[in-house]
Design a protein around this nucleic acid. Structure first.
Length: 405
DNA sequence: CGCGATGATTCGCG
DNA sequence: CGCGAATCATCGCG
């Protein structure tokens, strides 16, 4: 890339040096017409040109100026033009329009996705911190990690941007420098605008390849950060007890249809200080694990049933439902999600005696419901456990709970 | 350390 | 895209 230009110049040099004949030639060719003076003159000039790079800068500058003003300059310039015309074609041929680098695109996209590139969201980490504070102590642990992640990310981002800016600035400086150089050189050698354009693009390409290295390492840094922090999803923390209780409460009170809507998920997420997708994960895991071994969950099922029953009775202790198993949930569906009915609470309550096997179950629920006092909860739970044990053979090991898809 | 619990991820399906 | 299912990876307890 960059070496194209040196090669260009070099090839000229070689062209001249490689044809020691040129100087000789001219000397010989002009022999006899104007005498030794002129021959010597040309020889001197060529000599000066060939050795100009060996001289000190000031000296070379002076010599250059002298040459520029030399009367032979136009002639030499023409010679160079001719040479150029021949070489420039081959150079042109070698020059290709570069396609946009897919690798670079990939990196760019990733940086954009990670929020490293793209518009500065200055208040980002602050907002995250505020959010963390707003969620209260419950999610503090998680949120702290998150803000930590954000902080590191923004650090990377800052470094990335300053470096990028530096590179861009250097690139511009270098470009203008080279263009000035070329402009100046164009007085002594033919330089087409096309050529300048080419040089600029070469420079840009070079710098963009440097930028790509920057982007590459930035990506790597982000990946590492990710694996250390965000991938703490792998290095998971259990949800705190309160969150688990909220989730379980919902699950068991919607046992007949434990599929929270998007809104419900959002609300649960808010209540538990976790994300919606975590809620989804939780319900996904819960459903499958519950279904896989209902017996194992019976105890907690009835516990939550009892709990909701307690709240239900305390809230609506009005007469009507003294003995009807008002825990709609577990009673109605102890073994299976979506029974034929739509599974909303009262529906399943009504239909509870309609289907399937849980005669003992109902009794158990009634017990647990009756046993509202904390002291008796244990007992009721126990009996429930027994009941579920008897029910278990029906539904647990082989699993296929009736009515589940 | 082993083992079950549990949150997260992946894959295939409709 | 949401779900079920299988699987991974870590946690927490004895």
């Amino acid at each position: 890339m960059m070496d194209e230009q040196p090669r260009l110049m070099h090839s000229h040099g070689v062209g001249m040096a490689g044809h020691p004949g040129l100087a000789q030639h001219m000397q010989d060719g002009t022999a006899g017409t104007d005498g030794e003076g002129r021959k010597q003159d040309i020889g001197d000039i060529l000599q000066q040109i060939m050795t100009i790079t060996d001289q000190s800068l000031d000296e070379a500058q002076a010599r250059k100026h002298a040459l520029n003003c030399h009367r032979m300059k136009p002639a030499l310039f023409n010679v160079l033009c001719e040479i150029k015309e021949k070489t420039v074609l081959s150079i042109r041929g070698a020059q290709e329009e570069e396609p946009p680098d897919p690798q670079l695109m990939r990196l760019d996209n990733m940086l954009l996705a990670e929020g490293v590139a793209g518009p500065e969201k200055g208040g980002g980490s602050a907002a995250a911190a505020a959010a963390a504070a707003a969620t209260g102590g419950i999610g503090a642990d998680n949120s702290v990690e998150h803000t930590d992640y954000r902080a590191k990310l923004s650090q990377i981002r800052q470094i990335y941007h300053t470096e990028l800016e530096k590179y861009e600035q250097a690139c511009n400086e270098f470009t203008t420098h080279v263009m000035n150089l070329l402009r100046e050189q164009s007085r002594t050698r033919p330089i087409s605008p096309k050529e300048i354009e080419r040089m600029v693009s070469i420079i840009h390409r070079k710098f963009s390849s440097i930028q790509m290295q920057l982007k590459q390492s930035t990506c790597e840094a982000v990946m590492i950060l990710r694996s250390r922090f965000l991938d703490a999803r792998r290095k998971r923390r259990n949800f705190n007890k309160q969150a688990t209780e909220i989730l379980n409460e919902y699950f068991y009170s919607h046992l007949s249809n434990p599929y929270p809507s998007e809104e419900a998920k959002e609300e649960l997420a808010k209540k538990c200080s976790i994300t919606v997708s975590q809620v989804s994960n939780w319900f996904g895991n819960k459903r499958i694990r519950y279904k896989k071994n209902i017996g194992k969950f019976q105890e907690e099922a009835n516990m939550y049933a009892a709990r909701t029953a307690v709240s239900a009775t305390s809230v609506s202790a009005h007469g009507s439902q003294a003995n009807s198993p008002s825990t709609p949930n577990s009673a109605g569906s102890a073994g299976s999600f979506n029974m034929s009915n739509s599974g909303d609470l009262f529906m399943s309550v009504q239909s509870l005696n309609g289907d399937s096997y849980q005669g003992g179950q109902v009794g158990a629920n009634i017990q647990s419901q009756v046993g509202a006092s904390p002291s008796s909860v244990n007992e009721s739970r126990h009996t429930v456990g027994m009941a579920c044990d008897t029910a278990q053979p029906l539904s647990s090991p082989g699993v296929q709970t009736p009515g589940i898809t």
